[in-house]
Amino acid sequence: MKIEETQYERPTSLEALILLIGETHKNLRILSGGAFSPSKVDNATVLIDIQDIGADRVEREGDFLRIGAAASLQQIMDADTGLDELRVPLTLEAGANVRNSLSLLNFLRSADPRSPFLTALLALAPELEMVPSGKRIFLENFPRIAPENELEFPLWMKLQLPAGFAWESIGRTPKDRPIICMAAARYKDGSLRIACGGDENPPRVVEQDSQAETLFALIKQAYESSGDDWASAEYRQEMSTVLLMRCLQRLEFDAFKKEEK
């Protein structure tokens, strides 16, 4: 399909967006901010740019955070989440320009397995609200490669803010991509959710409902086949327990401080 024949639409409401999606049945692509991939445009019959439908916001509702698909990473970084350490993986993900440009949806579509912010998000167990179906899926189930026909896509991401959040990573320099990273979220009910990454396997989640010993074994296991050009599996396995220990210590310290208050 020639680019001259591609239609560009910029709906101004959710209703108009849904109508457009309903009208089109082939090679529909969603544009939601910068960092587009050239392949996004190739062979598209319709490009729907969602920047004007109000999904470029980050909203906090009590303990929940809603992030629009067109909100930039910088907006997430500037949001009042109460999670200071969430800023760290964002600064590791990219410099300021890219954070200003890259929308949540494009980030989710383009993040590579070593992405620090993807690892951090996974620890927060976000749900994606799909449009137009209204279905909700967990982030770990979201396909990061966009389908040829984007008849359904996440318009909002919703997550429950944890009581505590800790981030640990190891890199060659302070802002280099981590060679191993870990995010831990502790919720009010005492549950703990840990995501680990930094290697060429996609970030994965280790949840803890039982003893700490099990957790350490699980995290080590998560790095069993993590050897790649950037670090050996042996190193990552050893470091996983170090980082986990640091995360846990800090989360307990946070909790302790809150109890004191």
């Binding site: 445009v41 910088q74 200003n100």
Partner: peptide
């Protein structure tokens, strides 16, 4: 880099139409 609505962004990452 250009400023888009006052924010520094990379112009290589945007379609002109956006």
């Amino acid at each position: 880099t250009v400023l888009l609505d006052g924010k520094a962004v990379n112009s290589c990452m945007f379609l002109a139409v956006q």
